[in-house]
Amino acid sequence: MNERYSRQQLFAPIGEEGQKKIREKHVVLIGAGALGTGNAEALVRAGIGKLTIIDRDYVEWSNLQRQQLYSEADAKERLPKAIAAKRRLEQINSEVEIEAIVGDAGPEELETIAVKQRPDLWIDATDNFDTRLVINDVAYKYNIPWIYGACVGSYGLSCAFIPNRTPCLYCLLETVPQGGLTCDTAGIISPAVQMVVSYQMAEALKILVEDWSALRGKLVSFDLWTNEYAAIRIDGVKKDGCPTCGRHPSYPFLSYEQRTKTAVLCGRDSVQIRPPARREYDLNEVAELFRRQGLQAEANPYLVSVSLGDKRLVVFRDGRALVHGTKDVQEAKAIYYRYLG
C-alpha cells in the first residue's frame, strides 16, 4: 500500500481498487479561480493520473484571500493562473501529470480536448453561464460527466450532471441566463468556496471510483451566513426536446455563432478580446512596440501589461487581450485595435 494514499484507501467505499481507478483518471478543470484552486488541490492530493487546467486570467492581489494555490510572488509577477497553479500542484504531488492551458475554454478548445484526450470528468470552476452551457454540450456530446459549482457571498450550489443518467443543466435552466444576471459583485467568503469545493469533490471521487449508485442526484444549495440549506432531486426535469440531452440533440452552444470573440468578465470591470484567428505573439516585440510609443510596458514569459491612463491592456501569447477599466465591449475593441490592429 502506498503510504501517501493510505487514509483514502482505508475509507471502505474507495479501498485499494478505488485508488487504482483514481490513479488512471484524467480530470479537466475549467477555471483556476477560487473553486478551481480548491478542486485542483484536492484532486492532486487524491492522486489522480492527470489534471488539465484551463484558465484565461492571471493572478492578482484580490485573489489571494481565497484562491488557495497562489502566493504574493505570483500576484507580483502577474503569473497566468494556470501556470502558477501547475507550479504549486507539482510541489504538492509530483506523481500527477499537470497540463496548464493559458487560454479561453471555448467550444473549439473543449471539443479538441474531448476528442483527443477523452478525459473522464470535467469540473466547472468558471464564473459565467456562457462557458457552463458549452461544457454542458461537450459533456453530453462526448458522454463525459461534469460537475457544476458556483458561489457568491456566503451562498453556493452544486450539481453533478451525468450523461445517460441525469438531465442536463439546460433542462434545469429552461432559459439561457442573460448576461447581467450571472455577474456577481457581492463579494465572497472563503468558507462558501470550500463548501462548494467539498460538494464537487465528493461527487468527483464517486465518479472517479465509478460508484454510480452513491451519487447524490440532487441540486444542493446552502447559505453559510443565514444557515439555510436546500436540495432538489433533478431526475424529474429531463425534457425530451432538450437540445443538449434530448432525443435529437443539436448542441447549440457548440455552433459557430456561439464562438464569441469578446466577453465581459464578471465583476472585474474588464473585457476579453479574442483575435479572429489564433496567433503566436513574440511578447518581447509587443512590449517593444508599446515602449516605442512612450508607454510603460511590463512583460513576463506569458503576457505583456501596459498602462493606458485609467485603463490597462494585457496581451497574452495567443493574441488574446484583457482590457481592464471598462465593461464596454466597443471601447475595449477600439483600444485593442489602436495598439494591436
Binding site: G31, L35, T126, D127, A150, V152, L157, T182, G267
Partner: peptide
C-alpha cells in the same frame, strides 16, 4: 417548498 437560485460566480 424548496427554492434554489442559480449564481454565476466561482
Amino acid at each position: 417548498v424548496e427554492i434554489v437560485h442559480f449564481v454565476g460566480g466561482g
